[in-house]
Amino acid sequence: MRTYYLKRLSMGALLIFSVSILVFSMMHMMPGDPIDLMVDRRVSQDRRDALRKEYGLDRPLITQYVDWAGKILLHGDFGIAIRTKQPVNDQLSRRIPISLKLCGLMFLFELIIAVPLGLICAYKKDSWIDRIITNISLVMTAVPNFWLCVILIIIFSVKLKWLPISGYEQARNWVLPVASGVLGGVSGTIRLTRSETIDAMRQKYVVTAYAKGLPHRAVVVGHVLRNALILITVLMCMSIPWLISGAVITERMFGIPGMGHLLINSIVMQDYSVVQACVLIITTLTVAFNILGDILIGLLDPRIRIAQTEGAQ
């Protein structure tokens, strides 16, 4: 088992390393001189050279990469934003908690709403309630997240005037952003829960449980639910990074100053050191949650644990 974890972790580290090279070289392939982003075009060549030296942009790319990656690894320091001339860390540390709060709330509500609905669909398969829920969730997958935000704003802020359009200080500011994220993500989770549960109900151990005379409720709770929820937990865990990237749009729409907002602003301003940092952080989270998901499913499901152990040898 330990070999499997080690293999998985080192694979994850290698992936993050590759992405860091990819992101770094991409940002340096950008057309134009980064110095042009910092100062006016009329600034003298001497001043430009001095700036280039100050930011270390005159050194070979490999040296720059090693320096950049080393600082992140050793000190968690993402350098200085080339446009705003502030440390990237200062900007990030203000914004990450806001993004985490948004994603956490979205995840929580998605779980509370989607899993029970998916279970109802599975238990009442092909009934009218199942048809209604699956059809609505099918249409919801076709609705782009940003348009959903617009519609929610039109209904609840402009027409009904119940909720504010933007801001993030008060609880009522968070209702629409969280609702848009949940409505966008809920359909996928409902369909996942439904198919996993139906799958679990078809297993032979369920037939055995009925055959040995267990009451319906005991079979559902003890056999079907227990098995279906394992995979649902893990897949939800793996979906967290996608929640983060979805929050990029939501933050932009509702003017919530989180990491996604920072990312898009930095892209528009071509502030590449900030873009690098954001992409790297989101990638690391993605890889980390995927590994966590793999480890979790091994802990929860002995069949998979055995397969993992054999696969690692």
Binding site: V19, V279, I282, T283
Partner: peptide, 8 residues
């Protein structure tokens, strides 16, 4: 695949 699509 390990970078979320929108972000990449």
């Amino acid at each position: 695949w390990c970078v979320p699509g929108t972000v990449l």
